[in-house]
Every structure is written in C-alpha cells, then in structure tokens.
Design a protein around this nucleic acid. Structure first.
Lengths: 106, 106
DNA sequence: TTCCTATTTGGCAGTATAACCAAATAGTGC
DNA sequence: GCACTATTTGGTTATACTGCCAAATAGGAA
C-alpha cells in the first residue's frame, strides 16, 4: 500500500468512524429533515446534554455537519445529505446477514 | 427515539464501524477487484499476519465479506460491492473539508 | 506420522471511545 | 452588574479497539 493511499484511506476511515455510532446516525437522520438546534436533538435522545454535544462535535470535526449560533441556540445542518443514501446499501448487508442466520438455524 | 429505531441504528452502526479503519477499507478495495486469499492481502499491508486476519474477521462478522477455504488457502469475497459506491460521497465530504480549511487559512 | 505452509486464536499492553457529572462559557434581559 | 438559559469543556471511570507475539489449528506432501 502506497503512503499516498494510506492518507486517503485514513481520511475516509475518519469520516466513517464519525458515523459509526447509533446516536450519531440518529442525529444525521434528524438533520436530513432540516437544520435543528441542540435542545431539539437532545429531547428524543436518551442521554446527557453533554453527551449529545460531544457527539455533535465529533460529526462537526469529521465535516459531516455545520453549526451556526443564533442567539442562545446553536443550529446544526447536514453538509452532505448524500451520506444517508448509503444506508440503503448497509440495509442490504444487514438483510443478507439475516438471511444467512436463517439458513444456519433451519 | 423508539427502541425499534435504536436496534436498527445499532445494526447500521456496527456495519459502519467495521468499515471505519484504513486497513479494512484497503481490504475492501482490493476485494472489489475480485476474491483474494489472505496471503495476497497480507503482502501489501504493512502489518502482522495475525493483524490482517483479525481485520478480516471483523469484516466477516459485519457481513461485509465471505470466506471460503480451498486447500491451504482461505479466499475472501466482497458480499455487497455497493458499499464502495459510498466512497464517492465520503470524498465529497473530504473535499468540502479541504475547501473549508483553505478559507480559514486565506 | 512428521514436516511444512496458511491461517486463526489467545493474551497482553497501549490507546482511544463513551458516558456521566460538574464547572465554564456565551447570549439575553432586567 | 446579576440571573437565566443553551451549549461546550474538563475530568473521571469503564469499556472497546489495535497491534504484536506466541501458540494452536488445519490441509497437503513426504
């Protein structure tokens, strides 16, 4: 593997890693419906405010979301909505896993 | 967030997490070109054999690859090649990150 | 059986993540 | 300035991941 390739792979892995958490995937889903403030996001996530805030900063550092402060609130927006298109393929993987399981059982 | 949703998100996050490593992304890239045995994969990855093997088992547990033993060798195959289509979007994210950086500097 | 090759597994040390709580910061209005 | 709300940051603990080495397993050949 060339060093140049390694850099590229590391960068990609960082983005994927940022997405690889249930809470963060949920946040991305919600943001797909339009910008949202932290307080709204916190409402339906069963976790401490500070935890949600940290998840948001992970997404932000990966460049997946942008934030904008307006008054007291901070609003987050999805940068590249295409990232959620990928979930269709992830579901394929999960479906074939489920089918596999079924075969093993029967 | 409903418990049902949580399950779905956890399952998706597991798949993403399995992809979220430079070495594993490299393996997936190579496998996109067709099945490959462990020894071939190990050649251009600068890591211990056992490390490569463990990465492969992570991918396998996530349902991203299948393995098949033939003689002494084990051949791995990509289950859902569509997972690599996603990289185009990841590159979008990275490109916009780079642009952002440039703006900050200038 | 014994040896050799290909791969996996177990164990360990170092590093990174995740969640919570408490404290800090930043607007807003009085 | 002070009080109040929204959010972030720091610190701590528990858990998970990564990479290496050494040992185990499995197939093939002598």
């Amino acid at each position: 593997m060339k060093p140049n390739d390694l850099h590229k792979l590391q960068a990609r892995a960082r983005v994927l890693k940022a997405m690889a958490h249930p809470t963060r995937l949920h946040i991305l889903n919600v943001l797909a419906g339009g910008e949202c403030c932290v307080c709204e996001l916190t409402e339906d996530i069963d976790a401490d405010l500070s935890t949600v805030s940290k998840h948001l900063s992970v997404l932000k550092n990966a460049g997946l979301v942008k934030d904008e402060k307006r008054g007291l609130q901070v609003f987050y927006t999805l940068c590249c909505p295409c990232i959620l298109d990928f979930m269709g393929c992830v579901e394929n993987v999960l479906r074939s896993n489920a089918a596999q399981q079924k075969n093993l059982v029967s």
